[in-house]
Structures are given as structure tokens and as C-alpha cells.
């Protein structure tokens, strides 16, 4: 595991509500989808922060906020001493260079009418200072080689590549502007098992060589454990538990984390005999109308009156040194 460098990104109390409106001419706000609701964390240089959670927990909205594709309702994200949501002009352009993204679906995130060279080189049309015109094709070929593709394939089209190779093209595009931070939104979930490992190894290799910081968003807890130094668990727009990979997987204290870990099927038929089984009832409630107090209480087996009235904060609890947002946090070993 990498030792923690200085914080490169500090997210403070980030909130994003999407309004639900009624009417056509006179739009009236009748509610809000609380997609991200008070998320704070730090990202250190050279580390991977994994964000896990089920669909609708706000992890992709968080990614969009950090890319500045969405504007937050409130909150700050400090990158190199500046709030990214207050940036404009040249500063914003530098931010766009500095924070890049790898998308989930390599089949739809590449333009089928552009050659691989054009796709990877397109960022240079906007950020001309990174690679002067004469130098571009050499840069692009270097990038192709870096991600393990044949540099001679610069003039091919996306459909001539397999899913795993397309994801490599997406990664090369993200690397083109030499960013410090890459936000990976489910980068391997569309890939086959045998290809997944290749892409995960590539991401790790690139991190070591280029000192990148990753925010790695995924729903696959095994993949997240493998790649992450620290992990944050999200539920309905909030981080419910955050800590090092070891703390979250070996010493989880939040009931949701424990249930999530318990639900992951393990590739070991003997494990089913001696595993701690926690089965949650029902589905995730709608983020447009989240439960009062603790948002997890409707599915939690420990819920008491206090949980409905008082929202548990993400703070260090007596049982464990890492923060957990549960009034009744207690240690439970779920993963053998």
C-alpha cells in the first residue's frame, strides 16, 4: 500500500439536489432528489480512493460533480488550495486538464466515426499547450504503447477493437493531458472476467509510473478492495463509513457495510458454510424522499427510535478509530 502523500483534493460537505418541478410555464418546485447530501473526504497524492454503493446511492453524481459536469447545490472541493466550483476561464481550463475521467461503457464512450488517433488526440485541440501540433502523433503513439496497444493502430476505428482494448483507448484519452486525478466510474464492470484483470493491472501500473490519484467508483466490492488504498461506502447520498481498505473489509462497524460485504458471493463453495449471512429486506428507498434520521434505518436490523429522530454523523466511534455513521456502531467480522 502506498504511504499517504499530502492531500491533493479535499471535498467538504458536498450537496447536490436535483429539483422536481411541476407545471410548464410557472414551474413550481415540489421536491428534490437528494442525490449527494453532505459528502466530505480527502484524496491524497498517489492513492486510490474507492467509492462503493448500490445504484441510486449518488456515486456517479459525485463523479460528475468532481468533473464539474454538474454544479453543486452547496459545498466545496478544494484542489491545490482552490475551490473548483469557483473557477472560471483559464483556471477552469487547467482544472479540466488536471482531472480526467474513464467511463463505464467502452462501447458508447468512443465516437465510432473517429479514428483512435483522433479520439486520443482530440484533447490537444483544446489544450494546445500540452502537445504542439507537430508532436501530436508521436505523443498519441506513446500513449497507445503505454496502455498496451499497438502504436501502429492509430488509424483504426473503435469497432476494430475488443471491449478491453476499447477501455484501454478510453484510458489513453484520459491520460493525454497528463492529469493528476482520474475519476474512474465503473471502469471494468462492462468487461469479461479475464479482461477485467488486465485493465485493473494496467490502472495500477499507470498509477505507479505516473503518480496518479484515482477516485475509483464501482459496485463490485472485490474489485474495489483490490485496487483501493482507502474506501468510502455510500448509501442514499451519504458516506456511511470510510477508512483504509483493511478497516472497511476486516473491521466494518456500520451495519450497511456489513450487509454489503455479506451479500457478495465468494468464489469458494466452502465459504457458504461458515460465512456470516446478513440479508437485507427490501430495496433502497427513493432519494427523493429519504427516511428521516439515519437513512439506512428502514432496512436496518438494529434500528431504534433514536435512529429515526437523530441523524448519525460520520465520526470516529468508540469501537474503532475509523469514521462510521451509525449510532450503534459495532465491530463485526463478515469477511473470513
Amino acid at each position: 500500500m502506498a504511504t499517504l502523500g499530502e492531500p491533493i483534493l479535499r471535498v467538504e460537505n458536498l450537496v447536490k439536489h436535483f429539483s422536481i418541478t411541476q407545471g410548464i410555464l410557472f414551474k413550481k418546485k415540489i421536491g428534490a432528489v437528494q442525490a449527494v447530501d453532505g459528502v466530505s473526504f480527502e484524496l491524497h497524492r498517489g492513492e486510490t480512493l474507492g467509492i462503493v454503493g448500490e445504484s441510486g446511492c449518488g456515486k456517479s453524481t459525485l463523479a460528475k460533480l468532481l468533473m464539474r459536469l454538474e454544479h453543486p447545490t452547496s459545498g466545496r472541493a478544494i484542489l491545490n488550495d482552490k475551490d473548483i466550483f469557483k473557477m472560471s476561464g483559464g483556471e477552469l481550463r487547467r482544472l479540466r486538464r488536471n482531472v480526467q475521467m474513464v467511463m463505464q461503457d467502452p462501447y458508447t464512450s468512443l465516437n465510432p466515426r473517429m479514428t483512435v488517433g483522433d479520439i486520443i488526440g482530440e484533447p490537444y485541440n483544446i489544450h494546445t499547450e500540452v502537445a504542439p501540433k507537430g508532436d501530436r502523433s508521436r505523443r498519441i503513439q506513446e500513449l497507445l504503447e503505454l496502455v498496451g496497444l499497438n502504436p501502429e493502430h492509430i488509424n483504426r476505428y473503435p469497432h476494430q477493437f475488443s471491449g478491453g482494448q476499447r477501455q484501454r483507448i478510453g484510458i489513453a484519452r484520459a491520460l493525454a493531458l497528463k492529469p493528476e486525478i482520474i475519476v474512474c466510474d465503473e471502469p471494468v464492470s462492462a468487461l469479461d472476467v479475464s479482461i477485467q484483470a488486465q485493465v485493473i493491472n494496467l490502472l495500477e501500473k499507470l498509477q505507479n509510473e505516473l503518480a496518479l490519484s484515482y477516485i475509483f467508483i464501482a459496485h463490485d466490492l472485490s474489485v474495489v478492495r483490490h485496487i483501493s488504498d482507502r474506501v468510502g461506502v455510500m448509501y442514499l447520498g451519504k458516506i456511511v463509513e470510510i477508512g483504509t481498505e483493511d478497516e472497511i473489509y476486516q473491521r466494518p462497524t456500520h451495519p450497511y457495510t456489513q450487509a454489503l460485504l455479506s451479500a457478495v458471493p465468494m468464489p469458494d463453495p466452502d465459504a457458504r458454510l461458515h460465512r456470516d449471512i446478513i440479508r437485507l429486506e427490501g430495496d433502497v428507498p427513493s432519494p427523493a424522499n429519504p427516511p428521516s434520521g439515519c437513512r439506512f434505518r428502514t432496512r436496518c436490523w438494529k434500528a431504534q427510535e433514536k435512529c429515526a429522530t437523530e441523524e448519525p454523523l460520520l465520526i470516529r466511534r468508540a469501537v474503532e478509530p475509523h469514521p462510521s455513521a451509525c449510532h450503534f456502531a459495532e465491530l463485526r467480522h463478515v469477511v473470513a
Binding site: 469479461d192 472476467v193 485493473i200 493491472n201 466490492l221 481498505e245 473489509y249 465468494m266
Partner: peptide, 24 residues
Amino acid sequence: RGLLDSIPRLDHKGTELATIKGLP
């Protein structure tokens, strides 16, 4: 064996993943 070796595990962090080279 290649498939079993190439999946990340929940119960330990592990080092570099073994991969199956090439494509189907």
C-alpha cells in the same frame, strides 16, 4: 484455473492479478 486466478478476492487484498493473455 486462469479464470479463478484472475478474479480479485473479497477476503484478502492480494498483489497483482494473474491475467489470461489475449482475447477470446
